[in-house]
Design a protein around this nucleic acid. Sequence first.
DNA 1: TTTATAAAACCGACTAGGCGGTTTGTAAAG
DNA 2: CTTTACAAACCGCCTAGTCGGTTTTATAAA
Lengths: 212, 212
Amino acid sequence: MDNATRSERSRNAALEAAIAIIARDGPGRLTLDAIARESGLSKGGVMHQFRTKEAVLKALLERQMAHFEEFSTRYMAKASETSANPNLAAQLATLREAATSPNSAALALVAAMVENPRLMALPREREMERMAAIREEAADPDLAMLRWAGAMGLLLSSLFGMSPLSKGEHQRLFARLLDDAQWSGLAQPDATRAAKSGTAPAAKAATRRKRA
Amino acid sequence: MDNATRSERSRNAALEAAIAIIARDGPGRLTLDAIARESGLSKGGVMHQFRTKEAVLKALLERQMAHFEEFSTRYMAKASETSANPNLAAQLATLREAATSPNSAALALVAAMVENPRLMALPREREMERMAAIREEAADPDLAMLRWAGAMGLLLSSLFGMSPLSKGEHQRLFARLLDDAQWSGLAQPDATRAAKSGTAPAAKAATRRKRA
DNA sequence: TTTATAAAACCGACTAGGCGGTTTGTAAAG
DNA sequence: CTTTACAAACCGCCTAGTCGGTTTTATAAA
């Protein structure tokens, strides 16, 4: 077997093992020995591919980010034809996907945070770019962020095993978050936001485009 | 000094130390030795008050829950006079408080989850009761839950150090979540939910009560 | 193709230190 | 004098990371 693919296979096995361990035993049980055991590699083999445990977490994080990045891109490509706010739609759908997916990306997030909170910088920066895109396309940027926050809350609370919601409710709520029509009729009675009303009509027109 | 108050003081010192450690160094660094160091107690002293590390986490969790329980109760007592949905208002305000507070309760949650996911059962059950109360008082239960999820998302994402939002935005979004007037004009075009519309008028009247 | 050499992948025993928890000792409270 | 609160040394296990050695692949000269 080729050297490159051999490495690739090993790295992959180690990361898959890491995800399995986190999902099964919790982030606290993720150790290098456990990864070696679970993956079938020796500890030396694991350490050859990743010089430190932090390197494992980083690779894991990047892998999961790439996975959902692809999902998001793919979704947005389709949504951009019909939706007035494809970025928001894509993010909501991606968060739903993350909440549904068994080898949840977010578990990697938790593990990374426990081990080294600094690793959070990567996903945070990516998230900031996305938020900017969401705000720019939104008729009501704050409402868009609240819809995003709602999806995030559903994801994280279920991830923490502290969601009071059933799976059915979960799905229904995500669907409602995604449905633009349900969020178009909101008042913005506050004085500080009234100044923004000049931009609202154009946005409403954009929203209506979806109906066509 | 009285024996009871001596114990009380020690337990308190240990728990305060635990919070400080989690906030400063992350949940992964919370160890019994670290608690002893930080609190000024000896390790033996800590172990005398808490037989296991899990006992520390449990006490920490209960303490933080009690703290926010009190906040919530206090808030609801006032809100119930003016708001049509005091339970929701209280929860939103409590989540905002938790997001603002430096020694965040939720940090204890993370630590507990890492160490022993089963500990999550306590807060989850409490949360389910609250959700039930929120749904019962709501004209649009799903919307109420989405507002709750939005607050949860704001809290948890900032807690994870992965919030893309500034403090100002945070505050503004929480304020909007809390403002019933901003959520009263929503359409419910879905057929399955249309059956519920019979209860909506009463709820709208109740919401209007707040303005008076 | 064969052979020589280097380089990369991999193994598993080992180390040093941190971990949760125990034991033994001491002083204060009751 | 008994019990409770605390201190400090201690124990065995687990941890991340190291290291010398072995196997597999890559390069390339003969």
